[in-house]
Design a protein around this nucleic acid. Structure first.
Lengths: 150, 150
DNA sequence: CCCGCTTGGTAGCATGTTGCAACCAACGTG
DNA sequence: CACGTTGGTTGCAACATGCTACCAAGCGGG
């Protein structure tokens, strides 16, 4: 039952996101959810995480509105964990992490799982940060505009 | 001295990224680095993290090639921590987390720090996952293509 | 309906990690 | 050259993690 936020500078959206996700395991759970995992056992086998940890993480993701616990799709009495719309909105986060990993932690030609366009089976385009008028922005082209309720 | 990776499924780029960053504090350090923080004390004041933790995180980020320790820019004998190219490549990750936070954890009109285009001071466009030919992709339009060295 | 296997957990304990506070050395400034 | 600042290190207490054992509720077959 975590009520207090870990990071005090929570007017920053990045800190709130980080706090809402919880920990790295949670992020990998979300990744697996995007890949089609739904059942407790699927997550557990895929991640190799201890069951009590998985229990806690699933619960906190449900509490945070990222996952939702629904009746199993196969008609059994068990439950499944599926992404809510809020959880689905994490898609760019996962993709960004994936692309960063692909580009920085694999030797050329080293095998790794790949996220592809289902329609043509081709790799995705690398994510780009764009301005309102569509220019590509690098970190130095941006600034943090403090506060301002707008 | 962490040699072993925490997550065994490390043929997955997401897991490798997560492992390279280390923990959430590290990600907030990177965020602050994008915002212009360079000195130990700046990170410490901005994050409110214990100094021993900050020491450890800075070291592991340097070891991981995300940050680099350089002589201070003001001519003093102190050192500064700046993003390497690999660290700068985390930009989309931070932006994605920021946008997710903005869109899901703030009431409309609630104040929060904002990342803007330095040229016009306007908000950024929301990140989009695109196929090679430029179509916008939702999670269900993609699939994980297992292994395959290519 | 009963027996055994699977699923989805909980409980207890050892170990690792975090956070806090105190301390400290090197730097910088008057 | 004395004193505040910067950038740490050390030790310890508290908490989180991971492992293993255990367990109850499905569920399937005979």
């Amino acid at each position: 039952m975590v009520t207090r936020t870990r990071f005090d500078d929570s007017e920053c959206p990045v800190a709130r996101s980080v706090d809402a996700i919880g920990d790295w395991w949670s992020l990998l759970i979300v990744r697996d959810a995007f890949d089609g995992s739904r059942r407790f056992g699927e997550f557990q086998r895929s991640l190799g995480v201890a069951k009590n940890i998985l229990t806690a993480r699933l619960r906190s993701l449900v509490a945070g509105g990222v996952l939702e616990s629904v009746p199993a799709s196969d008609g059994s009495a068990y439950r499944e964990y599926v992404l809510t719309p809020k959880g689905e909105a994490l898609f760019p986060v996962i993709v960004a992490l994936r692309q960063w990993g692909e580009q920085n932690f694999f030797a050329p030609g080293e095998p790794h799982s790949q996220l592809v366009d289902r329609r043509h089976g081709r790799q995705l385009r690398t994510l780009e940060v764009l301005s309102a008028d569509g220019r590509r922005l690098d970190p130095e082209d941006t600034a943090v505009h403090k506060v301002a309720d707008e």
